[in-house]
Every structure is written in structure tokens, then in C-alpha cells.
Design a protein around this nucleic acid. Structure first.
Lengths: 210, 210
DNA sequence: ACAAAAGTCAAGCGGCTGTTTGAGTTTCTT
DNA sequence: AAGAAACTCAAACAGCCGCTTGACTTTTGT
């Protein structure tokens, strides 16, 4: 018969796995993939070094699992934010929705910010073969591009793609650089008031003069 | 008497130092400070491991020297580009001057791009005590802010500071992320055509609607 | 009741890390 | 010519790295 009682042993194992992933994300957000250290992760997670090999095969396996966890949370938030857009949404609405997950993470701090920092670091040094999330990434890119081009009819596709990625890079920079830490000290409204106009301005660009 | 003949011995030492700094910058740009490895640097520079201790005291000393070298080159280029601005310069001129060093580095590749990548990485994970360059940094910030506020009279100082730093972050992101590598494949005019309007747009922002 | 399975743990493995040492060579000074 | 100074080098150092092992406890299945 199946498990009519709670699998206490397996649950404990899952708790260890979660603690390892959380500790890995924290270190990943702080120092990047090169700065990752097995013993620091296990100490921070309150686990034995062998637990990593047992649950994830290797430190790289744990690292990949943590990154995938972060990417999934990020992409879900991004997709949900973009879902609020309608064909009538203006450029500022697009920018606000596009920046919403980062603004929220900066204001909230904690795990949410750790996730964004990790995603940003992955955006700089991409790991091999994250094909599993490629579909979701395509969706966010497609949604943003459509909303953007609806508000900028005169723009070409390469320009729209570049501006989307540049705006994403700007937001990622806020997560990583000291400026983001200064920003995060204030309330969410203040962050949004500063960030959204800049993202919207980057979207719209400045028509070449002369 | 002073050295009437060339100090061959000292010159050789200087060549070793330069080679070590160059090799360090390359690895620094590629993998960041955490990914730095003594033997990879020395091998790449064609030097002995002891040369690092001899010339720089430690690997950290070499790393600091390389970062300082990169920061100096970056700041000089930035200051020179901003020097071309006049009180009559429009927002696009400011953006073009502000982005010029990065555009040039992306188009040129090689050591110039390595320098920009290193500077960008330092912008994310700042080392302790870079007081020696603080003055030059202040100068670039002051110049940019003045030119910016001359073109955006309605903007407050915190907003101007944020937009300057956000635009700098956007450019740094181009140096580090894959999008920059794709960009770098094209000619300089194409890079500038894409980048400058976005930087200018980020400077100008989008006035809050409604 | 009794294996089998799941998870944890201390100890130890080879390998790579940054650094030091002392001898060696070459150049400069006097 | 003789010594000082500048520089290079192979070898070794302790320490940390990721990973494995084998014994151990606890839970699950029959």
C-alpha cells in the first residue's frame, strides 16, 4: 500500500535539500558562481558535506538546482507582471510591469532579492544548457516585445529587441551594484518613482536629432 | 652617477610586471575576482609564481594593481569624452559622450574591452579602499551631472544622480552580458546607433502620465 | 520481526590553492 | 675585479578544495 502515514524520513531529506538550495542561493547572490564553496554552503545550511553528493550528485548539481529554482521564481513573477498588460497599455504601463518584479524584490529584500541577484549574475555568466527554461524566457521576451512595439510603431525589430535587453540589464544592474543597495533602503513607491521613468525612457529612446 | 645606460635588468622586471597585470586583467574580465587563480595568471603571462610575490607582494596586490590600472584607463577615457561637451550640448550629445568609451571599447575589442569588463565587474563587487581614484570619479560624476541638469531643468538632484548611475550600469551591463558580445560583432556606427538613443532616453526619462 | 531503504555523519582521499625559501643568474656600481 | 642589487626559478610548504567511503541511525515495507 502507498504511504498512508507521512514519510518522515523523506520529509527530513527534503528539508535538507531546501536548506542547501537556500544557502546556495544566498552565497550565489553574494559572490557569484566562482565564489561558491562547499563547506560554507553546508555549514550555512546546517548539513553535512556528504549531503550535497547524496542529494545533488555534486556541488555543480546543487548550483544548477539553485539557479533553476531562482530562474523559475523570476520567470513566474515576470510573466505574471506582464499578464496585467492590455493592448491599451501605454509605454509607462509597460515599463512599470516590466520593472515590477525587481522593484518588488528591492523593496522586500530577503529571499526575493537573493533570487533576483542570482538571476542577474546568471545573466552575466550564463551556465551551459538551461534549455529547460528557454520556453518561459521566450514568452517574457515575446510579451514585452509586443507591448513595446505597440507603443513604438516607428521602431524596427532589432531596436526593440535591444531596448528590451538593455532595460533588463539596467534592472539587473540595480540588483547587483551598490546603487541598488542604496535604493533598497527606501520604500517601494520611492523605488518605483525613480526606476520606472528611466526604464520607460530607455524603451522610448531619443529620436536622433538633426 | 645616474643610469646613463639603459637599466636592462629593471626593464626586464617591468616587462614581467606589465605582463602579469595584462594577464590578470584578462582573467579578471572573464571570470571576476573570485575566479582569479595564481598559476593561470603566471602561466598566461609566462612568469614564475614567485614573481607575483616579488613584484606585488601577493595575488591580492597584483589584483589591486590590475584593477587600479583598469580604473585609471577608464576614467581618463571618460573624462576626455566628457571634455568635448559645451554648455550648448544637447541631451543626445551628452549621451553620446557618456557612452563613447564603452562604444569604442565594444567596437575595438581586445585590451580596451578587457579594461571595460574589469571596471564593470568592479562596479558590482567593489574592493575596499579605492580612495586613490575617488577624485577622478567625482570629476566624471560632476561633469555628467552638470551637463545632464542643463538639459533637464525640471529634474531634481536625486533623480539626476540616479539616472546617471543607472545609465552607467546599463553600459556596464553591455560590457559583461552576452548582449554586449553580440553587439561587439558589428561596426562602431551600428553600436552607437543602438546604444546612444537608449542612454539618452534613460537620461530624459518619461514624465509620469495622468 | 526483519530486511531494505533513506538519510546522516566523521574521517580521509588526491589535488589544487597562495605563499615562501634558497640557490641561481644577470646587471649595475665602485 | 669584487661586491651589491635586481630578478628568476624549481621545489616545497601548510591549508583548503570537492568528493568518497563505510559505519551508523531511523523509517518503511512485508
Amino acid at each position: 500500500m502507498a504511504t498512508h502515514k507521512a514519510d518522515q524520513r523523506r520529509e527530513a531529506g527534503q528539508r535538507t535539500k531546501d536548506a542547501l538550495v537556500a544557502a546556495t542561493l544566498e552565497q550565489l547572490a553574494q559572490r557569484g558562481r566562482e565564489g561558491l564553496t562547499l563547506r560554507e554552503v553546508t555549514d550555512s545550511a546546517g548539513a553535512n558535506v556528504a549531503a550535497v553528493s547524496y542529494h545533488f550528485g555534486s556541488l555543480k548539481g546543487l548550483c544548477d538546482a539553485a539557479i533553476e529554482h531562482a530562474l523559475e521564481r523570476y520567470l513566474d513573477a515576470q510573466i505574471q507582471a506582464l499578464d496585467s498588460l492590455t493592448p491599451a497599455s501605454g509605454l509607462e504601463d509597460v515599463a512599470r510591469a516590466f520593472a515590477a518584479p525587481m522593484v518588488h524584490a528591492l523593496a522586500a529584500g530577503g529571499q526575493e532579492l537573493v533570487v533576483m541577484r542570482t538571476v542577474a549574475r546568471v545573466g552575466i555568466d550564463p551556465p551551459r544548457g538551461w534549455d529547460r527554461l528557454a520556453g518561459k524566457f521566450e514568452q517574457t521576451r515575446r510579451d514585452t516585445l509586443r507591448a513595446l512595439r505597440a507603443n513604438l510603431p516607428g521602431i524596427g525589430e532589432p531596436e526593440a529587441v535591444f531596448r528590451t535587453r538593455a532595460a533588463a540589464g539596467l534592472l539587473n544592474w540595480l540588483a547587483l551594484a551598490p546603487i541598488g543597495a542604496e535604493l533598497a533602503a527606501g520604500p517601494a513607491e520611492e523605488i518605483e518613482r525613480l526606476v520606472v521613468p528611466v526604464v520607460a525612457g530607455a524603451f522610448r529612446g531619443l529620436p536622433t536629432a538633426g
